[in-house]
């Protein structure tokens, strides 16, 4: 059998950079694509443009090759492996995609209470019982890794991820896996932040060890929380509206958070008046903490009676009420007295 063929390799460093550990803040990163021939470890650095695709001119036969996409940061001098895939004439080709309700395209992401979907596509598996094991099946890995209390994934060591589960596939096709919620470890499930990674690996054979064919991860961010100080549930406002401080933690990277007031007792879905100065739009790649100070909001609580103040956050997953409290406005002064005359 002639193993001599060239395999197409898509080169898109910028697309892969999005999956990188470092934040691509400037042109401080330089990309290298490395082809490592098995098993002699002959190494070739492919000359590529910043973006595009090309056929690898270095034949991968007879033992296959591993393609590695690296980025190197100038200061401090550090290299990051962005992606790697093993290619051989009889080893199948795999692809992994992860999606969620958040349409953000740079890095798949979702929130600690939300589901996500993994799609694994495997082609090229052999049905021949005499074929090598590496041609007849692939192994599947699921890793989870917490970023820690306030971490956002920068400079994490992915070798420290926990291998949560393993599976296998012995037939070609597209397989969809539904995960109702993340399994990233964390005592407070609302504050989990980290990533889940799904990988497809080849089986070991005489040519190469178990090697990565495809791998993707999804970032999981915590739920937002809010604390309003300056007013407490059950307070009565007799004069000017008090100065409020709204502490917001872990606002979702794509969110609109605001406070509203409406007359009456708390009721989910009520449409209220926006508290001036309380709206915050977050369009970021990581969660954000903010503190808002609200003053002079008398104009939206003119009538006496019971009022509700709510803090809401709007995300790709819907609108969540983070906090609410009721207060009473009592500004009308009643004079109890009598008028008498000398008549």
């Amino acid at each position: 059998m002639n193993h001599s063929f060239l395999r197409s390799l898509l080169f898109s460093p910028l697309a892969f950079l999005a999956l990188a550990t470092p934040a691509p803040a400037d042109d401080d990163y330089t990309f290298f694509i490395r082809q490592v021939q098995m098993p002699d470890e002959l190494i070739w650095d492919v000359a590529v443009d910043q973006e595009g695709s090309q056929l690898s001119p270095l034949a991968i036969n007879p033992n296959g090759a591993r393609f590695e996409l690296w980025t190197v940061k100038s200061s401090p001098l550090t290299s990051y492996l962005l992606d790697t895939t093993y290619v051989n004439s009889y080893v199948p080709v795999a692809d992994v995609t992860i999606t969620s309700e958040d349409p953000y395209e740079v890095i798949p992401r979702t929130r600690a209470d939300q589901p996500f979907t993994v799609t694994i596509d495997v082609q090229g598996l052999s049905a021949d019982p005499d074929a090598p094991d590496a041609a007849k099946g692939v192994k599947l890995l699921r890793h989870v890794q917490s970023y820690g209390a306030d971490g956002n994934g920068i400079n994490i060591n992915r070798n420290l991820a926990t291998l949560l589960s393993q599976g296998s596939l012995e037939s070609n096709g597209t397989f969809t896996l539904q995960y109702p919620v993340t399994s990233i470890p964390g005592a407070d499930r609302t504050k989990v932040r980290g990533e889940e990674r799904i990988s497809v690996f080849s089986y070991e054979d005489y040519q190469a060890p178990e090697s990565q064919l495809a791998s993707r991860f999804i970032q999981i961010w915590p739920l937002a929380e809010s604390t309003v100080t300056g007013i407490e549930d059950g307070d009565t406002i007799k004069g000017n509206a008090p100065r409020l401080t709204i502490d917001l933690n872990d606002l979702y990277p794509d969110s609109y958070t605001y406070a509203q007031v409406y007359k009456g007792s708390p009721q989910l879905g009520s449409d209220g008046a926006l508290v001036p100065g309380s709206a915050l739009l977050v369009d970021s790649s990581v969660p954000r903490d903010e503190q808002l100070v609200v003053e002079n909001w008398d104009s939206i609580i003119e009538d006496d009676g019971e009022w509700t103040l709510e803090v809401l956050t709007d995300t790709p997953f819907g609108t969540d009420r983070l906090e609410y409290l009721t207060f009473t406005v009592k500004r009308t002064i009643r004079l109890n007295g009598s008028v008498t005359s000398i008549d």
């Binding site: 993994v118 589960s165 599976g167 296998s168 995960y179």
Partner: peptide, 10 residues
């Protein structure tokens, strides 16, 4: 669901 696709192997 990943485990349900096939038993761990290799």
């Amino acid at each position: 669901p990943l485990v349900e696709l096939g038993p761990a192997a290799g």
